[in-house]
Simulated assay, not measured.
Amino acid sequence: MSVTIKDVAKLANVAPSTVSRVISNSPRISEKTKRKVRKVMDELNYHPNLNARSLANSSTKSIGVVLSPTVNTSFQNPFFAEVIRGITSYINQKDYSLYFITGKNEEEIAQLVNKTVKGGRVDGIILLYSKENDPIIQYLNSHNYPFVLVGKPYSHLEEITYIDNDNYSASREVTNYLLSLGHKNIAFVGGEKNLLVTKERLRGYEDALKLNGLRIIDEFSIFTSFTREGGMNAVEQLLSINHEPTAIVVTDDILALGVISALKNKGFSVPEDISVVSFNNALIAELASPPLTSVDINIYQLGYEAAKNIIYKVEEPDGSEKSIIVPYKLIIRDTCSINNVRKLIES
């Protein structure tokens, strides 16, 4: 006869529900009790039937991950691969699986999220992007459905668990770094304008300029898709205006590769003619030519924390909402240099 959860509970002198919580690694159980129960499980050679547990608890042991409509280009961006690696690392420890949700456009994704929730296909959802007035966030929040957002919500900050960096401060820091090198004509290349990450980094860039007594040049702010082609198109727009920038803040490494490629095609040298600083610090930043100065936003940790918090919300539904701000660090490489005007003055 096979060993049951009741056999483990009896020998460990605890309730069967306690054994169940130890199996799910509930934070409500002390480490001392967990060690005692796990010792008994090993002695009895007990292995929980995860499928049976899922059915008994009306749980799918699956977490939905909502990707943006640009899924085809998203998987070309190292950010998404790395954040999913972080998510997978934690959910594998908890014996959960991933269920990807995406579509051709935002309306289709919203419909799929609705079907997924109503069909009970997953226990909770992670959203990998945050945009202004997002109907998916509004739907999940209004239905009190467990979800975690990678990024900062547009509203209801106290009601939503989100994992993010301080994108405003990071953008101010990189802009100030360029200012310290003598650059004054600094451009900004961001992703889609309705994304909160774009808004926060734009605000940090603009405030850094204002606080240093510089005026905002509207034509210096370009918004495009998070693709290499988007970066190349941004350069075309920047070089079509009357005065050229001497430095560019770019909000994504893939975008930055497009920016550098287009600048080289136009006969500009990076960083001698135009300096470039980016965000994410994915592997491509280090391998770029020249190696790219980039903000390390700890992408893996963003995914890991998102997975950890969604599973906590699923297993402990009475827990409180919280936000986690993952630290960032500017990694200085070879795409930034002192402004040519300052070089002449100092020489």
Results as ranks from 00 to 15, higher is better:
113 V>I: 12
117 V>L: 09
314 V>F: 08
96 Y>H: 11
220 F>A: 11
263 L>C: 05
327 P>T: 06
139 Y>F: 15
187 A>H: 06
254 I>R: 06
150 V>L: 08
112 L>G: 02
194 N>C: 00
185 N>W: 02
196 L>D: 00
134 D>A: 11
19 V>S: 12
289 S>P: 00
150 V>F: 04
336 C>Y: 03
169 S>W: 00
267 G>K: 00
242 N>W: 00
215 R>K: 15
72 N>M: 13
25 N>P: 01
52 A>L: 09
193 K>T: 07
277 V>N: 01
187 A>W: 10
192 E>M: 09
66 V>F: 05
148 V>D: 03
285 A>S: 15
340 N>Q: 14
52 A>Y: 10
284 I>E: 03
306 A>F: 08
161 T>W: 05
112 L>P: 02
281 N>E: 10
342 R>N: 13
64 G>S: 12
237 Q>I: 14
221 S>G: 00
137 I>T: 14
44 L>C: 08
183 H>L: 10
221 S>K: 15
209 L>E: 13
161 T>M: 05
311 I>W: 07
336 C>H: 02
171 S>R: 02
145 Y>C: 10
278 S>A: 11
292 L>W: 01
330 L>Q: 01
47 H>E: 10
195 L>T: 01
333 R>M: 03
164 D>P: 01
337 S>N: 12
37 V>G: 06
238 L>Y: 08
310 I>M: 06
105 N>T: 15
